[in-house]
Simulated scan of single mutants.
Amino acid sequence: MKPYFKLHEIALLSLFGALVFVLRLIFKIPIHVPGSSGLVWVLPLIIGVGIVRKPGAGLYMGFISGILASFFGVGALHVLDIFKYLAMGLSIDLTSMLFLYRFSNPAVGFVVGAVGNLTKMLVNYGVQLLFGVQAAFILVGITVSTATHLIFGGIGGVLAVLILSRLRRAGVITEDEENTDN
């Protein structure tokens, strides 16, 4: 039986999934605006999905980063942080498939990044509701956070598209590596 992901794809996706976790630890954006971390979180996910171009790539990276975040307890939700990362990876996967992995357009990167970051926010609030945080507080938080999550996730998506195009022009990523048939 032929494996779905090749060994080099698994290695690449694992590294990018771990990079999401590392970026979460290293880069603290001191502007204190909700969703600003999405600027760097979506970068490795979109780049990994843009290189591998197979359904499930984002979900796999979300799983890796979620396991690391849950194991090391860096987020406010600790063990339940895995759901946030899985949802972000899955939403980036689905949105990328919707656009047929055409990451040559910055608008596609903006939409994919924004959807990924918004999904992370919604799962975060959903878990808080599950723990009994009053819905009124969550609704106030969502109204402000939605716009900032959209903007920062979108900017991260545009940056990911620009990085992917530079990697293609430099010959680091070839068309053969991007082909989903092999």
Rank of each mutant, 00 (worst) to 15 (best):
M1G: 13
M1C: 05
K2R: 12
K2L: 07
Y4S: 00
H8P: 00
E9Q: 14
I10S: 00
A11N: 10
A11M: 12
A11K: 09
A11T: 14
S14Q: 02
L19G: 03
L19T: 14
L23E: 04
F27L: 14
F27V: 15
K28R: 13
K28Y: 05
I29C: 10
H32Y: 12
G38V: 13
L39P: 00
L45W: 07
L45T: 10
I46T: 03
I47D: 06
I47E: 07
V49W: 07
I51D: 07
P55L: 10
L59C: 05
L59Y: 02
M61N: 12
G62N: 08
S65C: 13
G66M: 07
G66H: 10
A69Y: 07
S70P: 03
F71L: 11
V74D: 06
G75N: 07
V79R: 07
L80K: 08
D81R: 00
K84I: 14
A87H: 03
A87I: 13
M88I: 13
M88A: 15
G89K: 11
G89V: 11
L90H: 03
S91L: 15
I92S: 04
D93V: 00
L94N: 08
T95S: 15
T95G: 05
L98V: 12
F99W: 06
F103M: 01
F103T: 00
F103S: 00
S104A: 02
S104F: 05
V108K: 03
V108T: 08
G109N: 05
V112A: 02
V115M: 08
T119Y: 03
T119Q: 06
L122I: 06
N124Y: 14
N124M: 13
Q128F: 15
L130F: 13
F131P: 00
G132Q: 02
G132H: 01
Q134L: 07
Q134G: 14
A136V: 15
F137Q: 09
I138N: 05
I138C: 05
I138D: 05
I138G: 07
I142M: 12
T146G: 06
T146Y: 06
T148A: 04
T148M: 08
L150W: 12
L150T: 15
G157W: 11
G157S: 06
G157M: 06
A160V: 06
V161L: 06
L162T: 10
L162F: 06
I163R: 06
L164Q: 00
S165C: 01
S165E: 15
R166H: 04
R166I: 02
R168F: 10
R168K: 15
G171H: 05
V172I: 15
V172Y: 14
I173K: 02
T174E: 05
E175C: 01
D176E: 15
E177Q: 09
E177D: 08
D181A: 14
